[in-house]
Design a protein around this nucleic acid. Structure first.
Lengths: 243, 243
DNA sequence: CGAGCCGTTGAGGGGATTCAAGCTCAGTGG
DNA sequence: CCACTGAGCTTGAATCCCCTCAACGGCTCG
Protein backbone atom coordinates (compact mmCIF):
# COMPACT_ATOMS: atom_id res chain seq x y z
CA UNK A 1 0.00 0.00 0.00
CA UNK A 2 1.90 2.99 -1.29
CA UNK A 3 1.33 5.68 1.30
CA UNK A 4 3.28 8.93 0.96
CA UNK A 5 3.93 10.69 4.24
CA UNK A 6 2.51 14.17 4.58
CA UNK A 7 4.81 16.74 3.08
CA UNK A 8 7.02 18.62 5.46
CA UNK A 9 6.82 22.30 4.66
CA UNK A 10 8.42 23.84 7.67
CA UNK A 11 10.96 22.68 10.15
CA UNK A 12 12.48 24.62 12.97
CA UNK A 13 16.17 23.76 13.08
CA UNK A 14 16.94 25.34 16.43
CA UNK A 15 17.92 23.01 19.24
CA UNK A 16 16.79 22.38 21.84
CA UNK A 17 13.12 22.14 20.96
CA UNK A 18 12.40 24.47 23.82
CA UNK A 19 12.76 27.54 21.64
CA UNK A 20 10.08 26.46 19.21
CA UNK A 21 7.53 25.25 21.73
CA UNK A 22 8.00 28.24 24.02
CA UNK A 23 7.28 30.53 21.13
CA UNK A 24 4.30 28.56 19.87
CA UNK A 25 1.29 30.82 19.67
CA UNK A 26 -1.06 28.06 20.75
CA UNK A 27 1.18 26.93 23.56
CA UNK A 28 -1.31 27.55 26.31
CA UNK A 29 -3.71 25.19 24.62
CA UNK A 30 -1.12 22.87 23.16
CA UNK A 31 -0.05 19.56 24.56
CA UNK A 32 3.25 20.75 25.91
CA UNK A 33 1.82 23.83 27.46
CA UNK A 34 1.89 21.93 30.70
CA UNK A 35 5.65 21.68 30.69
CA UNK A 36 7.56 24.46 32.35
CA UNK A 37 10.72 25.93 30.87
CA UNK A 38 12.91 23.32 32.58
CA UNK A 39 10.74 20.55 31.26
CA UNK A 40 10.89 21.91 27.76
CA UNK A 41 14.69 21.98 27.93
CA UNK A 42 14.72 18.24 28.38
CA UNK A 43 12.74 17.64 25.22
CA UNK A 44 15.33 16.94 22.60
CA UNK A 45 13.25 15.25 19.98
CA UNK A 46 12.32 17.03 16.80
CA UNK A 47 8.77 18.18 16.68
CA UNK A 48 8.10 18.79 13.01
CA UNK A 49 5.62 21.39 11.85
CA UNK A 50 3.45 20.23 8.95
CA UNK A 51 1.21 22.13 6.59
CA UNK A 52 -1.49 20.17 4.80
CA UNK A 53 -3.74 21.25 1.97
CA UNK A 54 -7.49 20.46 2.09
CA UNK A 55 -8.06 16.84 1.22
CA UNK A 56 -4.55 15.70 2.15
CA UNK A 57 -4.40 12.73 4.47
CA UNK A 58 -2.70 12.84 7.86
CA UNK A 59 -2.74 9.07 8.22
CA UNK A 60 -4.72 6.08 6.99
CA UNK A 61 -6.63 3.42 8.85
CA UNK A 62 -4.43 0.44 9.61
CA UNK A 63 -1.23 2.35 8.92
CA UNK A 64 1.52 1.66 11.44
CA UNK A 65 1.61 4.61 13.80
CA UNK A 66 4.83 6.44 14.54
CA UNK A 67 3.66 9.82 15.75
CA UNK A 68 0.89 11.69 17.46
CA UNK A 69 -0.21 15.08 16.15
CA UNK A 70 -1.40 18.34 17.65
CA UNK A 71 -3.58 20.60 15.52
CA UNK A 72 -2.34 24.19 15.49
CA UNK A 73 -4.87 25.43 12.94
CA UNK A 74 -7.56 24.06 10.68
CA UNK A 75 -10.07 21.21 10.84
CA UNK A 76 -9.38 17.50 10.52
CA UNK A 77 -12.05 14.86 9.95
CA UNK A 78 -12.02 11.19 10.89
CA UNK A 79 -13.50 8.70 8.46
CA UNK A 80 -14.43 5.09 8.75
CA UNK A 81 -15.60 2.62 6.16
CA UNK A 82 -18.40 0.37 7.31
CA UNK A 83 -18.48 -3.34 6.58
CA UNK A 84 -20.68 -2.60 3.59
CA UNK A 85 -18.17 -0.17 2.13
CA UNK A 86 -19.96 3.08 2.98
CA UNK A 87 -17.74 5.90 4.05
CA UNK A 88 -18.83 7.73 7.17
CA UNK A 89 -17.33 10.75 8.91
CA UNK A 90 -17.45 10.10 12.64
CA UNK A 91 -15.81 13.15 14.21
CA UNK A 92 -14.11 16.48 13.62
CA UNK A 93 -11.09 17.88 15.43
CA UNK A 94 -9.82 21.45 15.54
CA UNK A 95 -7.19 23.72 17.05
CA UNK A 96 -5.59 22.32 20.16
CA UNK A 97 -6.89 18.79 19.64
CA UNK A 98 -4.65 15.75 19.80
CA UNK A 99 -5.04 13.20 17.01
CA UNK A 100 -3.54 9.81 16.38
CA UNK A 101 -3.18 8.96 20.07
CA UNK A 102 -3.07 5.29 19.11
CA UNK A 103 0.62 5.93 18.54
CA UNK A 104 1.15 6.23 22.29
CA UNK A 105 -0.03 2.64 22.55
CA UNK A 106 2.06 1.51 19.58
CA UNK A 107 -1.02 0.47 17.68
CA UNK A 108 -2.09 1.10 14.08
CA UNK A 109 -4.33 4.10 13.50
CA UNK A 110 -7.98 3.21 13.88
CA UNK A 111 -9.47 5.50 11.30
CA UNK A 112 -8.50 7.77 8.48
CA UNK A 113 -7.66 11.39 9.27
CA UNK A 114 -8.05 13.92 6.47
CA UNK A 115 -7.53 17.67 6.41
CA UNK A 116 -10.78 19.56 5.75
CA UNK A 117 -9.30 23.04 5.53
CA UNK A 118 -5.67 24.02 5.31
CA UNK A 119 -4.20 22.44 8.42
CA UNK A 120 -1.11 23.16 10.52
CA UNK A 121 0.11 20.26 12.60
CA UNK A 122 2.85 19.48 15.06
CA UNK A 123 4.14 15.97 14.53
CA UNK A 124 5.34 14.47 17.82
CA UNK A 125 7.31 11.23 17.51
CA UNK A 126 5.91 8.42 19.58
CA UNK A 127 9.23 7.88 21.36
CA UNK A 128 8.99 11.27 22.99
CA UNK A 129 6.33 10.23 25.46
CA UNK A 130 7.69 6.73 25.84
CA UNK A 131 9.21 7.20 29.24
CA UNK A 132 6.04 8.69 30.69
CA UNK A 133 4.78 7.14 33.87
CA UNK A 134 8.09 5.93 35.17
CA UNK A 135 7.65 3.18 37.70
CA UNK A 136 3.97 2.83 36.96
CA UNK A 137 4.39 2.84 33.22
CA UNK A 138 2.47 -0.40 32.89
CA UNK A 139 -0.52 0.91 34.74
CA UNK A 140 -0.43 4.10 32.75
CA UNK A 141 -0.39 2.12 29.53
CA UNK A 142 -3.41 0.16 30.65
CA UNK A 143 -5.17 3.38 31.53
CA UNK A 144 -4.53 4.96 28.16
CA UNK A 145 -5.54 1.74 26.50
CA UNK A 146 -8.96 1.91 28.15
CA UNK A 147 -9.40 5.47 27.07
CA UNK A 148 -8.62 4.58 23.51
CA UNK A 149 -10.98 1.64 23.65
CA UNK A 150 -13.81 3.89 24.76
CA UNK A 151 -13.05 6.32 21.95
CA UNK A 152 -13.00 3.50 19.46
CA UNK A 153 -16.35 2.22 20.70
CA UNK A 154 -17.90 5.68 20.46
CA UNK A 155 -16.68 6.14 16.89
CA UNK A 156 -17.83 2.68 15.93
CA UNK A 157 -21.24 3.53 17.35
CA UNK A 158 -21.46 6.60 15.16
CA UNK A 159 -20.30 4.69 12.09
CA UNK A 160 -22.22 1.44 12.47
CA UNK A 161 -25.32 2.08 14.55
CA UNK A 162 -26.24 5.57 13.41
CA UNK A 163 -26.28 5.14 9.64
CA UNK A 164 -28.19 3.18 7.06
CA UNK A 165 -31.67 1.65 6.96
CA UNK A 166 -33.38 0.64 10.18
CA UNK A 167 -33.04 -3.08 9.55
CA UNK A 168 -29.31 -2.83 9.00
CA UNK A 169 -28.81 -0.81 12.17
CA UNK A 170 -30.84 -3.39 14.06
CA UNK A 171 -28.74 -6.26 12.74
CA UNK A 172 -25.55 -4.46 13.66
CA UNK A 173 -26.83 -3.85 17.16
CA UNK A 174 -27.55 -7.56 17.53
CA UNK A 175 -24.03 -8.35 16.34
CA UNK A 176 -22.67 -5.96 18.96
CA UNK A 177 -24.83 -7.42 21.73
CA UNK A 178 -23.78 -10.88 20.66
CA UNK A 179 -20.21 -9.98 21.49
CA UNK A 180 -21.39 -9.42 25.06
CA UNK A 181 -23.34 -12.69 25.34
CA UNK A 182 -23.17 -14.52 28.64
CA UNK A 183 -22.02 -18.05 29.42
CA UNK A 184 -25.39 -19.52 28.45
CA UNK A 185 -25.10 -18.03 24.99
CA UNK A 186 -27.85 -15.53 25.73
CA UNK A 187 -27.71 -11.86 24.88
CA UNK A 188 -29.28 -8.89 26.58
CA UNK A 189 -32.21 -7.75 24.46
CA UNK A 190 -33.13 -4.15 25.32
CA UNK A 191 -36.68 -2.93 25.66
CA UNK A 192 -38.13 -1.67 22.39
CA UNK A 193 -37.94 1.97 23.42
CA UNK A 194 -34.33 1.46 24.47
CA UNK A 195 -33.56 0.05 21.04
CA UNK A 196 -35.19 3.19 19.71
CA UNK A 197 -32.91 5.40 21.80
CA UNK A 198 -29.89 3.50 20.52
CA UNK A 199 -30.76 3.40 16.84
CA UNK A 200 -32.78 6.60 16.50
CA UNK A 201 -36.08 5.02 15.57
CA UNK A 202 -39.53 4.78 17.13
CA UNK A 203 -40.32 1.88 19.42
CA UNK A 204 -42.92 0.71 16.91
CA UNK A 205 -40.28 0.35 14.22
CA UNK A 206 -38.02 -1.46 16.68
CA UNK A 207 -40.87 -3.82 17.54
CA UNK A 208 -41.61 -4.54 13.89
CA UNK A 209 -37.97 -5.32 13.22
CA UNK A 210 -37.63 -7.62 16.22
CA UNK A 211 -40.81 -9.43 15.28
CA UNK A 212 -39.67 -9.93 11.72
CA UNK A 213 -36.26 -11.20 12.80
CA UNK A 214 -38.04 -13.64 15.11
CA UNK A 215 -40.15 -14.91 12.21
CA UNK A 216 -36.99 -15.24 10.14
CA UNK A 217 -35.32 -17.34 12.83
CA UNK A 218 -32.48 -14.89 13.38
CA UNK A 219 -33.58 -14.06 16.90
CA UNK A 220 -35.48 -15.89 19.62
CA UNK A 221 -36.65 -13.48 22.32
CA UNK A 222 -36.75 -14.97 25.82
CA UNK A 223 -38.68 -12.43 27.90
CA UNK A 224 -37.79 -10.58 29.85
CA UNK A 225 -34.78 -8.83 28.34
CA UNK A 226 -32.95 -11.80 26.90
CA UNK A 227 -32.70 -13.58 23.58
CA UNK A 228 -30.81 -16.21 21.67
CA UNK A 229 -29.38 -15.33 18.28
CA UNK A 230 -28.58 -17.63 15.40
CA UNK A 231 -25.12 -16.38 14.57
CA UNK A 232 -25.14 -17.92 11.12
CA UNK A 233 -28.45 -16.40 10.05
CA UNK A 234 -27.46 -13.10 11.60
CA UNK A 235 -24.27 -13.01 9.55
CA UNK A 236 -26.21 -13.95 6.43
CA UNK A 237 -28.82 -11.29 7.08
CA UNK A 238 -26.05 -8.74 7.61
CA UNK A 239 -24.36 -9.34 4.28
CA UNK A 240 -27.75 -9.39 2.55
CA UNK A 241 -28.82 -6.09 4.11
CA UNK A 242 -25.43 -4.48 3.72
CA UNK A 243 -25.19 -4.91 -0.03
CA UNK B 1 -30.29 17.13 43.32
CA UNK B 2 -30.79 14.17 45.65
CA UNK B 3 -28.55 11.49 44.22
CA UNK B 4 -28.21 8.23 46.16
CA UNK B 5 -24.89 6.53 45.65
CA UNK B 6 -24.97 3.02 44.26
CA UNK B 7 -25.53 0.46 46.98
CA UNK B 8 -22.48 -1.33 48.22
CA UNK B 9 -23.21 -5.02 48.35
CA UNK B 10 -19.80 -6.48 48.83
CA UNK B 11 -16.63 -5.20 50.33
CA UNK B 12 -13.39 -7.02 50.80
CA UNK B 13 -11.99 -6.04 54.18
CA UNK B 14 -8.58 -7.62 53.75
CA UNK B 15 -5.63 -5.26 53.64
CA UNK B 16 -3.61 -4.63 51.64
CA UNK B 17 -5.74 -4.49 48.53
CA UNK B 18 -3.28 -6.84 46.93
CA UNK B 19 -5.16 -9.91 48.05
CA UNK B 20 -8.38 -8.89 46.38
CA UNK B 21 -6.92 -7.69 43.08
CA UNK B 22 -4.56 -10.63 42.77
CA UNK B 23 -7.48 -13.00 43.13
CA UNK B 24 -9.74 -11.10 40.76
CA UNK B 25 -10.93 -13.42 38.04
CA UNK B 26 -10.78 -10.69 35.42
CA UNK B 27 -7.39 -9.48 36.54
CA UNK B 28 -5.65 -10.08 33.25
CA UNK B 29 -8.13 -7.80 31.55
CA UNK B 30 -8.65 -5.46 34.49
CA UNK B 31 -7.03 -2.10 34.95
CA UNK B 32 -4.59 -3.21 37.60
CA UNK B 33 -3.58 -6.31 35.74
CA UNK B 34 -0.54 -4.35 34.66
CA UNK B 35 0.75 -4.01 38.19
CA UNK B 36 3.04 -6.73 39.43
CA UNK B 37 2.78 -8.14 42.92
CA UNK B 38 5.08 -5.49 44.36
CA UNK B 39 3.02 -2.77 42.76
CA UNK B 40 -0.17 -4.17 44.15
CA UNK B 41 1.30 -4.19 47.64
CA UNK B 42 1.66 -0.45 47.49
CA UNK B 43 -2.01 0.07 46.71
CA UNK B 44 -3.61 0.75 50.05
CA UNK B 45 -6.81 2.36 48.96
CA UNK B 46 -10.09 0.53 49.21
CA UNK B 47 -11.42 -0.68 45.94
CA UNK B 48 -15.07 -1.33 46.58
CA UNK B 49 -16.98 -4.00 44.69
CA UNK B 50 -20.47 -2.92 43.65
CA UNK B 51 -23.42 -4.89 42.38
CA UNK B 52 -26.08 -3.00 40.45
CA UNK B 53 -29.50 -4.15 39.32
CA UNK B 54 -30.68 -3.44 35.76
CA UNK B 55 -31.77 0.17 35.46
CA UNK B 56 -29.70 1.38 38.42
CA UNK B 57 -27.53 4.37 37.70
CA UNK B 58 -23.75 4.35 38.14
CA UNK B 59 -23.50 8.12 37.91
CA UNK B 60 -25.39 11.05 36.45
CA UNK B 61 -24.35 13.70 33.98
CA UNK B 62 -22.92 16.73 35.75
CA UNK B 63 -22.45 14.89 39.01
CA UNK B 64 -19.12 15.66 40.70
CA UNK B 65 -16.83 12.74 40.03
CA UNK B 66 -14.99 10.97 42.81
CA UNK B 67 -14.21 7.58 41.35
CA UNK B 68 -13.51 5.68 38.19
CA UNK B 69 -15.08 2.25 37.65
CA UNK B 70 -14.01 -1.00 36.07
CA UNK B 71 -16.72 -3.34 34.78
CA UNK B 72 -16.24 -6.90 35.99
CA UNK B 73 -19.49 -8.22 34.54
CA UNK B 74 -22.58 -6.92 32.76
CA UNK B 75 -23.34 -4.12 30.33
CA UNK B 76 -23.47 -0.40 31.03
CA UNK B 77 -24.98 2.17 28.67
CA UNK B 78 -24.15 5.85 28.33
CA UNK B 79 -27.00 8.27 27.73
CA UNK B 80 -27.13 11.87 26.69
CA UNK B 81 -30.02 14.28 26.46
CA UNK B 82 -29.96 16.49 23.40
CA UNK B 83 -30.75 20.18 23.53
CA UNK B 84 -34.29 19.35 22.49
CA UNK B 85 -34.76 16.94 25.38
CA UNK B 86 -34.50 13.69 23.46
CA UNK B 87 -32.66 10.93 25.24
CA UNK B 88 -30.07 9.12 23.16
CA UNK B 89 -27.87 6.15 24.01
CA UNK B 90 -24.41 6.85 22.61
CA UNK B 91 -22.31 3.88 23.67
CA UNK B 92 -22.21 0.55 25.50
CA UNK B 93 -19.45 -0.76 27.74
CA UNK B 94 -18.84 -4.30 28.95
CA UNK B 95 -16.48 -6.50 30.92
CA UNK B 96 -13.03 -5.02 31.33
CA UNK B 97 -14.03 -1.54 30.24
CA UNK B 98 -13.17 1.56 32.24
CA UNK B 99 -15.96 4.06 32.80
CA UNK B 100 -16.09 7.48 34.38
CA UNK B 101 -12.52 8.36 33.44
CA UNK B 102 -13.45 12.03 33.81
CA UNK B 103 -12.70 11.46 37.49
CA UNK B 104 -9.00 11.22 36.70
CA UNK B 105 -9.23 14.78 35.46
CA UNK B 106 -11.32 15.93 38.41
CA UNK B 107 -14.18 16.87 36.15
CA UNK B 108 -17.91 16.18 36.39
CA UNK B 109 -19.17 13.13 34.55
CA UNK B 110 -20.08 13.94 30.97
CA UNK B 111 -22.98 11.58 30.50
CA UNK B 112 -25.26 9.31 32.41
CA UNK B 113 -24.17 5.72 32.99
CA UNK B 114 -26.89 3.15 33.62
CA UNK B 115 -26.71 -0.60 34.18
CA UNK B 116 -28.40 -2.56 31.40
CA UNK B 117 -28.04 -6.00 32.90
CA UNK B 118 -26.98 -6.91 36.41
CA UNK B 119 -23.57 -5.27 36.68
CA UNK B 120 -20.51 -5.91 38.86
CA UNK B 121 -18.19 -2.96 39.25
CA UNK B 122 -14.96 -2.11 40.95
CA UNK B 123 -15.07 1.42 42.31
CA UNK B 124 -11.60 2.99 42.27
CA UNK B 125 -11.26 6.25 44.20
CA UNK B 126 -9.86 9.08 42.13
CA UNK B 127 -7.06 9.69 44.62
CA UNK B 128 -5.52 6.32 43.88
CA UNK B 129 -4.17 7.34 40.53
CA UNK B 130 -3.42 10.89 41.60
CA UNK B 131 0.32 10.52 41.89
CA UNK B 132 0.62 8.99 38.44
CA UNK B 133 3.16 10.54 36.14
CA UNK B 134 5.47 11.85 38.80
CA UNK B 135 7.67 14.60 37.46
CA UNK B 136 5.70 14.92 34.26
CA UNK B 137 2.32 14.85 35.95
CA UNK B 138 1.29 18.05 34.20
CA UNK B 139 2.03 16.70 30.78
CA UNK B 140 0.25 13.49 31.60
CA UNK B 141 -2.80 15.41 32.71
CA UNK B 142 -2.82 17.33 29.45
CA UNK B 143 -2.54 14.09 27.57
CA UNK B 144 -5.46 12.48 29.35
CA UNK B 145 -7.43 15.64 28.91
CA UNK B 146 -7.04 15.43 25.13
CA UNK B 147 -8.14 11.84 25.15
CA UNK B 148 -11.24 12.69 27.10
CA UNK B 149 -11.98 15.61 24.80
CA UNK B 150 -11.87 13.31 21.79
CA UNK B 151 -14.19 10.86 23.51
CA UNK B 152 -16.58 13.64 24.37
CA UNK B 153 -16.59 14.87 20.79
CA UNK B 154 -17.28 11.38 19.47
CA UNK B 155 -20.20 10.89 21.83
CA UNK B 156 -21.59 14.30 21.05
CA UNK B 157 -21.40 13.42 17.37
CA UNK B 158 -23.48 10.31 17.96
CA UNK B 159 -25.99 12.20 20.08
CA UNK B 160 -26.38 15.41 18.09
CA UNK B 161 -25.47 14.73 14.47
CA UNK B 162 -26.79 11.21 14.06
CA UNK B 163 -30.35 11.57 15.30
CA UNK B 164 -33.45 13.44 14.34
CA UNK B 165 -34.77 14.88 11.07
CA UNK B 166 -32.35 15.92 8.35
CA UNK B 167 -32.91 19.64 8.82
CA UNK B 168 -32.17 19.46 12.54
CA UNK B 169 -28.96 17.50 11.97
CA UNK B 170 -27.94 20.07 9.38
CA UNK B 171 -28.55 22.96 11.76
CA UNK B 172 -26.55 21.24 14.48
CA UNK B 173 -23.67 20.67 12.09
CA UNK B 174 -23.66 24.37 11.26
CA UNK B 175 -23.59 25.19 14.96
CA UNK B 176 -20.62 22.88 15.37
CA UNK B 177 -18.78 24.35 12.40
CA UNK B 178 -19.51 27.80 13.70
CA UNK B 179 -17.48 26.99 16.80
CA UNK B 180 -14.52 26.47 14.47
CA UNK B 181 -14.99 29.70 12.52
CA UNK B 182 -11.87 31.61 11.54
CA UNK B 183 -10.82 35.15 12.31
CA UNK B 184 -12.91 36.56 9.47
CA UNK B 185 -16.03 35.00 10.92
CA UNK B 186 -16.22 32.47 8.13
CA UNK B 187 -16.90 28.80 8.59
CA UNK B 188 -15.75 25.83 6.57
CA UNK B 189 -18.71 24.60 4.54
CA UNK B 190 -18.13 21.00 3.42
CA UNK B 191 -18.97 19.73 -0.03
CA UNK B 192 -22.50 18.36 -0.27
CA UNK B 193 -21.38 14.75 -0.39
CA UNK B 194 -19.18 15.35 2.66
CA UNK B 195 -22.18 16.70 4.53
CA UNK B 196 -23.92 13.54 3.47
CA UNK B 197 -21.13 11.39 4.94
CA UNK B 198 -21.36 13.32 8.19
CA UNK B 199 -25.12 13.35 8.62
CA UNK B 200 -26.05 10.10 6.89
CA UNK B 201 -28.07 11.61 4.09
CA UNK B 202 -27.76 11.82 0.31
CA UNK B 203 -25.92 14.73 -1.25
CA UNK B 204 -29.16 15.81 -2.90
CA UNK B 205 -30.84 16.17 0.48
CA UNK B 206 -27.82 18.07 1.77
CA UNK B 207 -28.00 20.37 -1.23
CA UNK B 208 -31.71 21.03 -0.74
CA UNK B 209 -31.16 21.84 2.92
CA UNK B 210 -28.26 24.21 2.22
CA UNK B 211 -30.25 25.97 -0.49
CA UNK B 212 -33.24 26.39 1.76
CA UNK B 213 -31.11 27.76 4.61
CA UNK B 214 -29.59 30.19 2.15
CA UNK B 215 -33.06 31.39 1.10
CA UNK B 216 -33.96 31.72 4.76
CA UNK B 217 -30.93 33.89 5.41
CA UNK B 218 -29.39 31.53 7.94
CA UNK B 219 -26.44 30.73 5.73
CA UNK B 220 -24.56 32.60 3.03
CA UNK B 221 -22.34 30.21 1.04
CA UNK B 222 -19.12 31.76 -0.25
CA UNK B 223 -17.75 29.22 -2.75
CA UNK B 224 -15.57 27.43 -2.55
CA UNK B 225 -15.97 25.70 0.81
CA UNK B 226 -16.76 28.68 2.98
CA UNK B 227 -19.84 30.40 4.31
CA UNK B 228 -21.06 33.03 6.69
CA UNK B 229 -23.74 32.10 9.20
CA UNK B 230 -26.24 34.39 10.89
CA UNK B 231 -25.82 33.18 14.46
CA UNK B 232 -29.12 34.63 15.58
CA UNK B 233 -31.19 33.05 12.84
CA UNK B 234 -29.33 29.79 13.29
CA UNK B 235 -30.19 29.73 16.97
CA UNK B 236 -33.81 30.58 16.19
CA UNK B 237 -34.01 27.87 13.55
CA UNK B 238 -32.53 25.39 16.01
CA UNK B 239 -35.10 25.96 18.71
CA UNK B 240 -37.87 25.92 16.11
CA UNK B 241 -36.69 22.62 14.62
CA UNK B 242 -35.88 21.08 17.98
CA UNK B 243 -39.34 21.42 19.46
C1' DC C 1 -14.85 22.77 -26.49
C1' DG C 2 -15.92 18.50 -24.67
C1' DA C 3 -15.21 16.08 -20.25
C1' DG C 4 -15.75 15.85 -15.56
C1' DC C 5 -16.78 17.66 -11.03
C1' DC C 6 -19.92 20.06 -8.17
C1' DG C 7 -24.21 21.92 -7.21
C1' DT C 8 -29.29 22.55 -7.88
C1' DT C 9 -33.99 21.25 -8.65
C1' DG C 10 -38.01 18.21 -10.02
C1' DA C 11 -40.94 13.86 -10.00
C1' DG C 12 -41.99 9.55 -8.15
C1' DG C 13 -41.57 5.78 -4.89
C1' DG C 14 -40.40 3.59 -0.54
C1' DG C 15 -39.33 3.33 4.17
C1' DA C 16 -40.13 5.16 8.63
C1' DT C 17 -43.23 7.83 11.45
C1' DT C 18 -47.66 8.90 13.26
C1' DC C 19 -51.98 7.65 14.96
C1' DA C 20 -54.65 4.02 16.58
C1' DA C 21 -56.30 -0.37 18.38
C1' DG C 22 -55.68 -4.56 20.82
C1' DC C 23 -52.84 -7.94 23.21
C1' DT C 24 -50.34 -10.19 27.36
C1' DC C 25 -48.89 -10.01 31.88
C1' DA C 26 -47.93 -8.47 36.66
C1' DG C 27 -49.56 -5.91 40.42
C1' DT C 28 -53.48 -4.02 43.09
C1' DG C 29 -57.45 -3.75 45.69
C1' DG C 30 -62.46 -4.51 46.00
C1' DC D 1 -61.59 -14.54 42.93
C1' DC D 2 -61.58 -11.26 39.49
C1' DA D 3 -62.19 -6.75 37.57
C1' DC D 4 -59.11 -2.93 37.15
C1' DT D 5 -54.99 -0.78 35.82
C1' DG D 6 -50.75 0.32 33.57
C1' DA D 7 -46.53 -1.07 31.27
C1' DG D 8 -44.63 -3.31 27.49
C1' DC D 9 -45.24 -5.34 22.97
C1' DT D 10 -47.50 -6.08 18.52
C1' DT D 11 -49.88 -4.95 14.36
C1' DG D 12 -52.59 -2.09 10.95
C1' DA D 13 -53.55 2.14 8.10
C1' DA D 14 -52.44 6.67 6.54
C1' DT D 15 -49.11 10.22 6.12
C1' DC D 16 -44.81 12.25 5.30
C1' DC D 17 -39.96 12.66 4.94
C1' DC D 18 -36.19 11.29 2.50
C1' DC D 19 -34.18 8.48 -1.18
C1' DT D 20 -33.84 7.31 -6.01
C1' DC D 21 -33.64 8.53 -10.60
C1' DA D 22 -33.24 12.13 -13.70
C1' DA D 23 -32.12 16.44 -16.07
C1' DC D 24 -29.68 20.64 -16.24
C1' DG D 25 -26.25 24.67 -15.35
C1' DG D 26 -21.83 26.62 -13.87
C1' DC D 27 -17.15 25.95 -13.56
C1' DT D 28 -12.39 24.26 -14.25
C1' DC D 29 -9.44 21.54 -16.89
C1' DG D 30 -6.94 19.16 -20.45
Amino acid sequence: MLMPRPRLYLRDDSHPQARACAACEVRRSALFGALDAAGLERVHVDIAALLLAPGERVYARGEASAAVFTIRAGIVRFERVTAGGARRIVRLAGRGDLIGAEALLERPYHDEAVACTEVQLCRIPQALVGELGGAQAGLLHELMSRWQRALDAAEAWAAELSAGPARLRMLRLLALLDRHRDDDGLIWLPRRDEIGAMLDMTFETASRLVSRLRREGVLEPLPPRAARVDAGRLAAALVAADA
